[in-house]
Simulated assay, not measured.
Amino acid sequence: MKSVELFTGAGGLAMGTAKAGFHHLALVERDKHSCYTIRENQQRSNNAASNWRLHQMDVADFDISTIGKEIDLLAGGPPCQPFSIGGRHGAHLDERDMFPQFFRAVRELRPKAFLIENVRGLLRQNFINYFEYIILQLTHPEVLLNDNESWIEHVARLERHHNGAVPDDLEYKVTYKLLNAADYGVPQKRERVFIVGFRSDLNINWSWTEPTHTEEALIWDKWVTGEYWERHSIPSSARPDCNPKLRARLQKTGASLLGSMTAPWRTVRDAISDLPNSHAASSIPNHIYIPGARSYPGHTGSPLDEPAKTLKAGVHGVPGGENMLALPSGEVRYFTVREAARLQTFPDDYYFPCTWGESMRQIGNAVPVNLAYIIASSIYNHLQFVTANKKIVNAV
C-alpha cells in the first residue's frame, strides 16, 4: 500500500508504517540534520530506509500534485512546539503551527486513511477549542477557511456544516486517543495524542488496539513471582525492598493481577541490559559514553527497573535529566545514543551519525517505532480487508 509522510524527522513513524506494510512514495522533512540521518541510513544496504524517497524542504513548499497516485495512508507529526508543555504554548498563534499544511495534504491527496501523532499538550484545556477545530477540519477538509475569516469563525461554520444533513464529496471518520507507549511494549512512559481518520466512503469501522502491557503485570512479576529479577539474574540480596504502600496495593489488587492477560511493562533494564557497559570501549554503533551527568531537582534520571521517563528533545538544547539513567547505586549517567534509540524501539541497525546532542534531539522528537507499527498495522489490515472485498464485488 502506498503512503506519504510529512514532518518525517529522523524516521521513527516512517519506519513503523513501513514495517506495517506501507510503501513511502514521499517523505518530507526540512531539518537538514534529520535528513542527514535518513540519508546516512539509506546508504546502508540492509536498512529499512534504503528505498525511502526523501524531500528536504518545508512542507509548505512541497508540490503534492507530483505524487500523482492514489494514496492509502497520509501520516505525519506536525511540529509539536506550539502545543508542547515545554514550548511557548502559542497554538494557532504560533508560526510553527503546521496543521493547516496537513489539512491541505488531505484535501489534495484524498488518502484512504491518515495518521497523526502529537504531544499530549494538544489536549490542554486552553487549547481545547483549537483541537476541536483540528478534528472538524480533518473531518471536512474541503470546507475551506475563507479570506479574512478567523479560525474561530471558521470552526463555528464547520460545526454548523458538521451538524447539517448535506454530505461532503470528501469526508473522514476521525477518532483520537491519548496513548502511553509503555502500554504497548515500549520501554518508556511516553504519552502522545494520536489522530486517525478513514475516508467515509470506505465505511470502515475501526477501533484502537487494546494495551498489550501493563504496570500491574510488571508489579506482579517483580514482587509476587520474582520472575523479573530472575530473568535478569538479580540475586535476592541485590533486589530493592517492596515498600509498605506497594505491599498494601498488592494485597488489595492481587486477584486482578493474577488474572491479568497482559505482559509486564518493559523497563530500561529490559531494553539495554545486553549492551556492554558504556564506560568500556564498544564496537556497537552509537554506544559511546558521554561524561558529566549530574542529578538536580526535577532532573533525576530514569530508574533502571522502570520504563524510562519520556525522552525529550528540549526547547533550548537537550534536557539532561530526561536523557539520564539513574542506577540502583545512586549514580547517574547519560544514556548513550544507542540506549536512547532502544528506548524508542529503533532497530540496532538504524544509525545516528550526528553529535550526541543532535542525535538525542532527533530521538526525543521521534515516534516510537513499535508503537507506530502497532497502529499502522491495524490501519493496514482494515484497508486491506476493504480492498479485498471490493475486488470480490467487482469480480462478481
Rank of each mutant, 00 (worst) to 15 (best):
F194W: 14
E358Q: 15
D147L: 11
Q42W: 00
V28F: 05
G185C: 13
T17D: 05
A10T: 06
T37Y: 03
E215W: 13
W208H: 03
D63L: 07
N277I: 05
D201F: 09
N277W: 02
E331K: 15
T262Y: 08
L74Q: 10
M15Y: 12
A49M: 13
Y373M: 02
F352A: 07
A281W: 04
D168S: 11
P291R: 01
Q137V: 15
I288D: 09
Q384F: 03
S50V: 08
R107W: 12
A165G: 05
V4K: 07
N118E: 02
A105I: 05
P285N: 10
L311W: 06
Y296F: 13
K391H: 06
L258G: 10
K309W: 07
W229E: 06
Q362H: 14
N381I: 00
D183G: 10
L170G: 10
I290L: 11
L158C: 05
W356Y: 15
M324E: 10
T267C: 09
A340M: 09
G292R: 10
A281F: 08
T209C: 07
H162W: 04
I152P: 04
A181H: 12
E358M: 10
Y351N: 14
P235M: 07
A263M: 13
R157M: 03
Q101N: 12
S233A: 15
A271V: 11
P240G: 01
P211N: 09
I288V: 14
A326N: 04
L93Y: 13
I38T: 03
L122V: 14
S84L: 03
A182V: 10
H33K: 12
R124C: 11
Y228D: 08
T225K: 09
A395Q: 11
A182D: 00
N277Q: 01
S302H: 06
A372T: 07
P79L: 06
H33P: 04
R269C: 07
L327A: 07
Q43N: 15
S282K: 02
P328C: 11
Q56K: 14
D94F: 05
K69F: 12
A49C: 11
R269D: 10
L54H: 08
L325T: 01
E306G: 14
H316P: 02
V367I: 14
N389P: 00
A313R: 13
H89M: 02
L246N: 02
L74C: 06
